[in-house]
Design a protein around this nucleic acid. Structure first.
Lengths: 110, 110
DNA sequence: TAGATAGTTAACTAATTGGTTAAATACTAA
DNA sequence: TTAGTATTTAACCAATTAGTTAACTATCTA
């Protein structure tokens, strides 16, 4: 799917890529630095970065022989806003649980 | 990947499934009702529902010949919380843009 | 019991994904 | 110019995904 939200969520569906974003939240990093915590090959890392780049979640520069990546958080904001519309639903569920427990207690009194 | 966050984001990476969740935010619905807006076959719908169910995003009952689905928003809450840790980053980016524009203006004065 | 409606399962396909190894490219430093 | 470091590209592979059609199961109603 080409729509932004789909490629954002697809990019976030992989734990390696989420870990990369977590690292990048603290500032730019080279490919080597991003690869360090993982035991997968460099080409695999390169592909993950490409997915993140195509999703608009990172931007890359060239600096000598390095290709530092920098987080671009705008798509995360959009994803967050999409989820936000469901806040009522997850709070509602808790409300319903509260209500259920309250009713149960009332029934036990009688 | 089996981790909850990965399967939540993977489930959200498809526009058909997101539309289903949007419909379910307003209350339970049968498979037929959920299928209605789409031109894909029933087995395809059935598979999407299975993805949502395995991700814990819906729960299903049997009621006569219907299998109504109901939204379970808890995984959305977790996803939202994961994204929330990046709020600073997307707000920071805007701050940096502000700063950049401010500097640009100062330079033009001198 | 037969027909209609609701939904799933099976078997298949084409495209995508996440990984690999080997080779190529880009740049630095001696 | 040669060696070393950083990174990407190419070619391949196995598993997964999103769809299909055909056949099956479950339930209600006449």
């Amino acid at each position: 799917m080409n729509d932004t939200l789909s490629s954002t969520f697809a990019a976030l569906a992989d734990p390696t890529r989420r870990a990369m974003l977590t690292r990048l939240a603290q500032g730019p990093a080279t490919v080597k630095e991003l690869a360090d915590p993982f035991k997968i090959s460099m080409p695999a890392i390169s592909k993950h970065l490409k997915v993140l780049e195509h999703a608009g979640l990172i931007e890359r520069r060239r600096e000598a022989q390095w290709r530092p990546a920098q987080l671009q958080a705008a798509p995360l904001k959009d994803a967050s806003q999409w989820l936000e519309t469901y806040r009522q639903n997850w709070e509602e569920n808790l409300d319903r649980l509260d209500e259920y427990l309250r009713k149960l207690q009332e029934e036990q009194k009688s």
